[in-house]
Amino acid sequence: MFELDIRSRKPIYEQLVDKMKELIMNEVVKADEQLPSVRALATELSINPNTIQKAYRELETQGFIYSIKGKGSFVSPNNQVKDNEKITEVKKELEKLIIEALYLGIQAREIIELIEDLDASKGGGESND
């Protein structure tokens, strides 16, 4: 399904959350599709099941997945859950990173070019929906 970087400073559960969000947003896993069980994914990735459970809990809190007791975890069909809230949160996070980049000496033009390159390669925004 995906690989994790055990040498990364980022906690494994956060890496899992990011990878799962990416799969959901890129529609690799579709709405209402069942995710691998905690035990199966822990075995596949050779990590502690509690780490998987923590990642699934975080994804559920963020509205990306939902759980059915005894059945498992599924991709949320309505990823517009808390949409405005998420956009506001992402903008605040982005603002912090841009301020930090400018402080570290990265030119505004470089940041703009990076955004334009990412937009062209990923496609996004309202014009590409």
Results as ranks from 00 to 15, higher is better:
L118Y: 06
I87G: 01
K19A: 15
E44Q: 15
F74S: 02
V38A: 09
I65F: 00
Q80H: 06
Y66S: 05
Y13G: 01
S127G: 04
E44C: 02
A101M: 13
G124K: 04
A120N: 12
K30P: 00
N84C: 05
L114Y: 07
R9F: 07
E33Q: 13
E14V: 13
Y66F: 15
K91S: 02
A120K: 13
G125S: 02
T43L: 12
G105L: 02
R39H: 03
A108G: 08
E93V: 06
E100S: 15
E113P: 01
N26G: 06
N78H: 03
N48G: 01
Y103P: 00
I112W: 05
P36Y: 03
E110K: 13
L104I: 10
N26A: 08
A42S: 14
A42M: 04
E60L: 01
V90T: 07
K19Q: 08
E93Y: 12
N26C: 03
E85I: 01
E58W: 00
Q62H: 00
Q80G: 02
G124T: 04
F2C: 03
L23K: 10
G123M: 05
N78G: 04
Q53P: 00
E116V: 12
E93Q: 14
P36T: 11
L35D: 05
Y13W: 03
V29S: 03
T61F: 06
E113G: 03
E100A: 14
S46G: 05
Y103T: 07
S67Q: 06
G70P: 07
L16V: 05
V17S: 02
L59W: 06
N50W: 10
K10H: 06
E44W: 09
K71S: 12
I99E: 15
L59G: 11
K86E: 06
E126Q: 08
K54T: 08
